[in-house]
């Protein structure tokens, strides 16, 4: 992070490239591929949320799908009731954030240790899954929206132009909205990490006691990180529901929770681009495996996770960075060595 913070030009170039790719993609690919990319981008937002709270806040949530699913359901319910997606997206971000604040208060102010945090987030996700699954039947409806239980909610209205419900976005515009949201969230998180809050969050992750001795309240900081993560995951949920125009309780499923953790582990913990890269790669792989019948995608995912934990625990991006750093540093280091060898007397002093 800090190494790249000193290179604003490079950052701007990367951002420009990302925006250019966002605009150019619909020109080059079929509509089916574009829809697939839209899904990847929506999931990328979810990956960013876990990459942020785990990589920079040190909070390993086994239930990031709780916020993702809440966001999805909040979007679906409110868009059906409001008829306009503008406010619905706001609700889909706000509701998971509030839920994260309540849950986070309960967890962090109770000084519950890391392992138990994992257990509690996992359990909360299961509770949500069970509850939503049991809402089949006509008595479970919020306003005009029937929750539908395990059948889910079909034909959820998709995004429309802000403030204009009659102008529904077509798939290409949907791609712009989703991909644009991914880039926006990425940039916003990068800026947040550079702010005092982001720096203190990293300090708390590094050493909670030291941070509190310096006068910061680790509980509050962690709560803040958790809430931001919840809001981002909620946005991801809304984007996901917009992609499929459908939401069902499987959005809370444990398998998806597991998959997010795999994205972050594979891409690289402690970076923001890593989780997105990991997410794209694993999802692409998953869709490729889905086209053949010989072996199961769980098998491949499990094997990938084990291999990364054992052999490449840092993940792809940090490893590539280290390798690139070494490649750049190698010539200069040999140069430095020769200078030292030529002037042994000085070097010893």
């Amino acid at each position: 992070m800090t190494r790249f913070a000193g290179r604003p030009l490079l950052n701007w170039a990367a951002l420009a490239a990302a925006v250019a790719a966002l605009i150019a993609v619909p020109e080059f690919v079929e509509i089916f591929t574009l829809m697939q990319f839209t899904l990847f981008a929506a999931m990328g937002v979810l990956a960013l949320s876990l990459g942020f709270i785990w990589g920079y806040g040190g909070i390993l949530s086994f239930g990031q799908t709780a916020f993702f699913g809440l966001g999805g359901y909040a979007y679906a319910v409110s868009v059906i009731n409001l008829g306009d997606s503008t406010g619905a997206i706001g609700i889909a971000i706000a509701l998971p954030a509030v839920f994260a604040a309540i849950l986070g208060y309960f967890v962090f102010y109770g000084r519950i240790s890391d392992v138990y945090l994992g257990v509690i987030t996992l359990t909360v996700t299961l509770i949500l899954f069970n509850v939503v699954n049991a809402t089949a039947g006509d008595e479970y409806r919020i306003g005009a929206a029937a929750l539908g239980g395990f059948n889910g909610m079909p034909s959820v209205p998709t995004f429309n132009m802000p403030g204009n419900p009659s102008m529904v976005l077509d798939p290409t515009q949907g791609w712009y909205a989703t991909g644009g949201a991914l880039i926006f969230v990425y940039v916003a998180l990068r800026l947040l990490l550079r702010s005092p809050f982001g720096r203190i969050a990293v300090a708390v992750r590094e050493n909670e006691v030291r941070a509190s001795l310096l006068g910061y309240d680790p509980r509050l900081i962690k709560l803040g990180v958790f809430v931001v993560g919840g809001a981002v995951a909620g946005l991801g949920g809304a984007l996901y529901v917009n992609w499929g125009a459908f939401v069902s309780p499987t959005i809370f499923a444990l398998s998806l929770s597991a998959e997010i953790i795999i994205w972050v582990t594979v891409g690289g913990l402690g970076t923001l681009i890593g989780p997105v890269v990991g997410c794209f790669m694993i999802q692409y792989l998953d869709s490729q495996i889905g086209t053949q019948q010989t072996f199961n995608s769980n098998l491949a995912l499990g094997a990938i996770l084990i291999v990364f934990v054992l052999l490449l625990p840092q993940g792809l991006i940090p490893t590539l960075r280290t390798l690139a750093g070494r490649a750049i540093a190698a010539p200069s280091r040999t140069a430095a060595k020769t200078t030292v060898a030529e002037r042994p007397a000085e070097a010893r002093q």
Partner: peptide, 11 residues
Amino acid sequence: ATWGLSLLIVG
């Protein structure tokens, strides 16, 4: 790793 293992066994 054990989560990965669980996916592997299921697969």
